[in-house]
Design a protein around this nucleic acid. Structure first.
Lengths: 345, 345
DNA sequence: CTGAAAGCGCTAACAT
DNA sequence: ATGTTAGCGCTTTCAG
């Protein structure tokens, strides 16, 4: 009746309409009326006016005054990657269940972007941080830890860092996967890696090296291909490898997209899984078992990773103290299917 | 040197350290020093102190004062679904490129949650909204439009609503897909739908009905299965359909997960695509062509959907006026592969 | 060239 | 049972 601007009502307007002071309005609106012995009639009057004016309390103002943003920051390298999407979802759902909202950011696999985003989230005063780091550098994360706590890292963690982290048991996973290949008589095995230099990647790589060594073999560098997590580059490098090392008889793909790229690349150069080429991949997919050749995989428990990350942050937020357990490592599961066959050469 | 609490420095602290007033500190820090003829020495002193104290301006305070949150709200039914993840990512990346952050929320395919989330985002004063609605109800969205503008709907849109919306051409997509099945002689065709009652779903369904009719056939209700977008329920309903209508010779899956469920269900009852059963699906997947039987699909341009949604919001944010074009419908692409074969019965 | 003061919308002492 | 006031951290007139 008074003012028709497309402007959300404020508490003072509600208070004026209900003809009480702002503090009374605040108390009545927030259900602290009883505790403050505000008359029932006043309470309902305030609530009515709030309703009528479509009052939505400004979380901005509240946050400023309470020094609590109610925000959790989540940074992932690529939200459209099912792996990270699953983590993001789990954290989001958990956070919402605890009355917190999630600020989601996408670092595009770029450390500099990650740094920028970290700053932005910080200035928005997020109360906690779940980050799947790019993984090439870590100082900025340690640095952030001194300001925004709690922070927890997922997947691309680092060794020797005083940061909480959640990840799968990459060593054991790689070992299981790779053993399958060895058992089937393969000895010239290509590795299609993710982002080189990151911990999970190096752990998988060195596990492969160890296993090779124990089998009296050696992993030549020319058998390592790929430089990140994305489709296109994985495809190029798989193709290169196929060309330079026509003697490969098997691939170990460090990610599900990489596996799919290997398939595509192999097909184009006239080689076929399984007749000609065996394949095992890290990370499962609902499609894996329905592939031309059902894909042998090692699957991570994404839901558990995400949930744990959320829990670490939320618990620390609640208790205010760092948890005793800093590193959470979860087992992976081997899903043997038909993409691994005996070496024929 | 002064205070060691794990407390982010504020502007007054920086000002004190630089021995200037807060206003000077603010101007110097924000690069408005030149314009305000602040001495170079003062500027650098302020910047130094800001640096030293690791000053991160509170976006909370800024937002409150500027009445601009710098936030875009994104609501999707399920972030872990690749379809929505792709949309979310595109919006996120676009928003970040424009200096805005994204508040991501997951409605878990539940209208009541969607309503709650809408309120929360509103109280955080998001400046724009991209929502992939659950799609069963729409009034709450119209309602929100009067408060938070701009808002744009993606995918599960509604007819006759004064809301901006971005979606694929479901009718043409369904027609293309379905025609393939008819052409190959199928007449008893099961439809594995998404969320019943939502516009894309009904458009696809009625397209199927029309096509059937034109072919002198009729789509019996017993041939429609599924009630949402998720794996498990799609699986159950596909199985039910297979049991109750053993005469089906083909499936039209309204989503990629549904297609995969049909596969799983079919396998378990001893039927096999393609010998026995043809299959075409809405939404492509990088795996589609490497399936046991390469999957015929109709693919949506997810990136374009997401980018357009972001653009509509961002442009409106910039110009302040509603765009003339309210509805954006994009073509889909038919990817014929081998999962459709001639009906043998 | 710089400072003082008001105010964004809310909550929480501290009065009555 | 309710009102007054101060203040969260910042920007921005308005005064020097």
């Amino acid at each position: 009746m008074a003012n028709d601007t497309a402007h959300t009502a404020t508490l003072v307007e509600v208070a004026a309409a209900a003809r009480v002071s702002v503090s009374t309005a605040s108390r009545a609106f927030n259900g602290r009326g009883e505790a403050n012995r505000i008359s029932a009639s006043t309470i309902s009057r305030v609530q009515q006016e709030a309703e009528r004016l479509r009052f939505q309390p400004s979380q901005l103002a509240r946050s400023l005054q309470s020094q609590r943003s109610g925000l959790i920051g989540v940074i992932v390298p690529d939200v459209s990657n099912p792996f990270f999407a699953a983590i993001a979802r789990e954290v989001t759902v958990q956070a919402e269940a605890h009355g917190l909202s999630v600020l989601l950011a996408d670092s595009r696999e770029t450390t500099s972007v990650e740094i920028k985003l970290l700053g932005e989230l910080q200035s928005r005063r997020v109360e906690g941080l779940v980050v799947c780091p790019v993984g090439e550098e870590s100082q900025h994360l340690v640095h952030v830890d001194q300001v925004v706590t709690p922070i927890v890292l997922v997947d691309r963690c680092f060794t020797g860092l005083p940061l909480a982290s959640v990840h799968s048991d990459n060593v054991h996973g790689a070992k299981q996967a790779f053993k399958q290949l060895l058992t089937h008589g393969h000895s010239v095995i290509g590795c299609l890696q993710r982002l080189s230099g990151t911990l999970p990647n190096e752990q998988r790589l060195s596990t492969v090296r160890n296993e090779m060594q124990q089998a009296g073999l050696v992993l030549d560098d020319s058998l390592i291909a790929g430089d990140n997590f994305t489709e296109s580059s994985g495809y190029e490098s798989a193709k290169l490898l196929l060309a330079s090392r026509p003697d490969v008889t098997a691939f170990f793909a460090f990610s599900s997209p990489n596996a799919f790229n290997a398939l595509r690349a192999a097909e184009e150069v006239g080689r076929s899984v399984t007749d000609d080429l065996s394949l095992v991949a890290f990370d499962d997919s609902p499609f894996a078992e329905f592939m031309q050749v059902p894909l042998s995989t090692v699957s991570q428990d994404l839901q558990r990773l995400g949930r744990t990350a959320a829990e670490v942050v939320l618990k620390q937020l609640k208790t205010g103290k760092k948890p005793r357990k800093r590193t959470h490592s979860f087992p992976v599961k081997l899903n043997p299917r038909q993409s691994i066959q005996d070496n024929q050469t």
